[in-house]
Amino acid sequence: MESNRTRLDQLFEFYREDPTDAFTIYAIATEYLKIDPKKALEYYQILLNDHPDYVATYYHTGKLYEVFGEKAQAGQIYQKGLLISQQQGNRHAFSELQQAYNQLMGLDDEDDW
Rank of each mutant, 00 (worst) to 15 (best):
L64H: 03
L48V: 11
D53W: 14
L82Q: 06
N49A: 13
F68C: 07
Q87K: 15
Q79V: 04
D53G: 14
Y78W: 04
K71N: 10
L83C: 08
N49V: 13
G69K: 10
Y78D: 01
L48T: 11
Y58W: 06
Y59D: 04
Y54A: 10
I84T: 12
A72N: 12
G75A: 12
N49I: 11
Q45R: 11
A72P: 01
Q76N: 13
E70T: 01
Y54G: 06
K63S: 08
Y44D: 02
Q88K: 15
H60D: 07
I84S: 06
E66S: 05
S85T: 09
Q73A: 09
H51I: 08
L48Q: 14
E70F: 05
Y58K: 04
K71P: 00
D53Q: 15
T61M: 07
K71A: 11
Q86T: 15
G75M: 08
Y78V: 05
E66L: 09
V55C: 10
L83M: 13
V55H: 05
Y43W: 15
E70R: 13
F68G: 07
E70N: 13
I84W: 05
A56C: 07
Y58M: 08
Q88H: 14
G81C: 06
Q45H: 11
V55T: 14
Y59C: 00
I84P: 05
A56W: 08
G62F: 02
F68H: 09
I46D: 04
E42V: 10
Q86K: 15
I84C: 07
K80T: 13
L47M: 10
K63M: 13
L82K: 04
E42I: 05
K71S: 12
Y58V: 06
A72H: 09
E42Q: 12
N49Y: 09
Y44K: 03
T57S: 06
E70H: 08
P52D: 14
I84V: 15
V67Y: 08
Y59K: 12
A56L: 14
Y58P: 03
I77W: 02
P52V: 14
G62Q: 04
E66A: 00
L47P: 01
E42N: 08
I77A: 01
Y44E: 03
Y44A: 00
T61F: 03
Q86I: 06
A56E: 12
I77H: 00
D53Y: 14
P52Y: 12
T61I: 02
G62M: 04
L83S: 15
L64F: 03
D50I: 06
Y58D: 00
I84G: 07
G75Q: 11
L64M: 11
T57P: 01
Q76A: 14
Q87G: 07
H51C: 09
Q45I: 11
F68K: 07
K63V: 07
E66I: 09
E70S: 11
T57H: 02
T57W: 00
Y43H: 09
D50F: 10
Y58N: 01
G69M: 09
D50H: 12
F68N: 07
T61E: 03
T61H: 00
S85D: 07
H60Q: 10
G75F: 05
